[in-house]
Design a protein around this nucleic acid. Sequence first.
DNA 1: ATGCCGTGGAAACCACGA
Length: 257
Amino acid sequence: MKIATYNVNGVNGRLPVLLRWLEESAPDIVCLQELKAPQEKFPEKAIEDAGYHAIWHGQKSWNGVAILSKGLDITEKSRVLPGDPEDSHSRYIEAAVNGIHIGCLYLPNGNPAPGPKFDYKLRWFERLTRHAAGLLASDSPVILTGDFNVMPTELDVYKPERWVDDALFRPETRAAFKELVEQGWTDAIRKLYPDEKIYTFWDYFRNAYGRDAGLRIDHFLLSPHLDKRLIAAGVDRHVRGWEKTSDHAPVWIELAD
DNA sequence: ATGCCGTGGAAACCACGA
């Protein structure tokens, strides 16, 4: 079974690229972030025609997350991250598909740091970590995937020294990610490629993709059950080179049945 | 060192992203 995550940066503006990639890659389950579309403007028909069921949590202009599935039933478990009734951002959706619990997340960017946006990021991270502990305790197969907006280590940044004060790489952010992973999660890409430079995002300007000035910020965290089933993982980085593409590339894993 | 590009929404610019 192949599962992918893709920050599309606008699901309607990105529709031709998304459909092309879905056909080429044919993942069984897909998590999307940054829909940038209100609930009623999600391109449900086009996605259905491509062979995918979908659940989504939209929002006008910003954020927005979705889970797609090719054929398999999707049972929605939650469309908010617990812990803050005041949080109005659409950044989390969770479902059960084919016996696997999947949390699809778009963690706040947090810049400029320090400041209220960075505080919001760290609070969101705390809520995620608390919720993740509950998921692990359930002892069921769980995946947490999406745009974490964190480069976990220096290996995940083209020029670490330039990013030390950035919300995506500050010590507090990296510590929060580390604390989450150390609950017992497996970073799928790093398990299979512990020492390789692997990026999932390249800025639109300064020819970042051409220079390979990238960041690894889209991640797959696997619970112990699924860690044992992991057989492959990768980044479809060529998609970042397409016309009218997102600044992120799709990331995927393959699990043994 | 920097939103230099790109998206969406509203208003012919702004907010936001990483």
